[in-house]
Design a binder for these strands. Sequence first.
DNA 1: CAGGAACTTCACGATTTTGTGAATGTATTT
DNA 2: AAATACATTCACAAAATCGTGAAGTTCCTG
Lengths: 179, 179
Amino acid sequence: MAEQTVPEGFTTEQLAYVEDLAATITASGVQRMPSRIYAAILVSEEGSMTAAELAATLRISPAAVSTAVRWLTQIGMVSRRSVPGSRREQYVVDSDSLIRLIAHDTRALQSWVVGFGRGLGVVEPDGAAARRLTELQEFFGFLLEEMDGVMERWYARTRQQGAATPTGQPSPSRAARNR
Amino acid sequence: MAEQTVPEGFTTEQLAYVEDLAATITASGVQRMPSRIYAAILVSEEGSMTAAELAATLRISPAAVSTAVRWLTQIGMVSRRSVPGSRREQYVVDSDSLIRLIAHDTRALQSWVVGFGRGLGVVEPDGAAARRLTELQEFFGFLLEEMDGVMERWYARTRQQGAATPTGQPSPSRAARNR
DNA sequence: CAGGAACTTCACGATTTTGTGAATGTATTT
DNA sequence: AAATACATTCACAAAATCGTGAAGTTCCTG
């Protein structure tokens, strides 16, 4: 029962997990390819992979990698890193990038607030519809506000834990700005 | 400039807004038809519409209404209500249903927690990948926990406002800071 | 109890989406 | 400076999705 391996050092077990995790990510709205790529890099021991490695591991074309990576870097789930001695680029996933993405992705919530707000101009003032729209608008606005406090508490908690459990790893809080 | 109307009492202005709001909803992952239907009912003064009204207003087939409504009721964005003297059913939207949906939709967050957890079984123990997976798992678990507090504060706030401003005027609000 | 109205389900056609191969662009190395 | 190695873009084909019409089912009405 020697560990089955594939070109880039993933065991078949790990490969299966990558697909499994990708499915979960896909279920929350991300397209298939970006999900698979994100999952693969996340699971890789180094936390980074090159385009060629991704193509070989996931059995997809370089074109698919390119397209998916472009999307991933645009929204900030993955960052690029140039490798000094090579033309190759590495695509990096650190856990913080996803966390920050969720924390600061106010765009989604804001578009709801704006969207409901617009409705107040077209329905009967003080009517039942206006009341519904107002409540929803306020709720999403409230979530927006609350997100700050939530993240504050998260970072407080991680600081505390980070001090308690020295894993011998340099703090991963620094992430590369993409582009 | 008499108000242009369509069969079910929507002005063209309102119809345009319905499509606009539907687009926002669609942008966050909901399919087109469910989004349009939800938007239409939400904007309707009564907060409820029949299948026939929906079909006429949105110019779609009864089949499309049926399919979309089934999905909407399954996830809880819309509820059904039988009309006493008729075979017709009404589909109801109240602002609370969406709010509760978001508040209690722990399934999404939980599947992330579970998903990351599974990964810990296949990566090198105490390695960098394991550290990433653990942090993400903890983060989503944290969000799950925090959701309770957030909703508690929301309901406290609405109770307060309900007493103070019956029409639901948006009052300057501050983010909660305390635990 | 027959007729019909309302909703649902099913199979199909049309549209949209998605990934590939080939061509193109760009930077590094010799 | 030419060659080469990566990465990206484009057009197309395959595949998945979506909405419709028609048939089916269920429950009211007369």
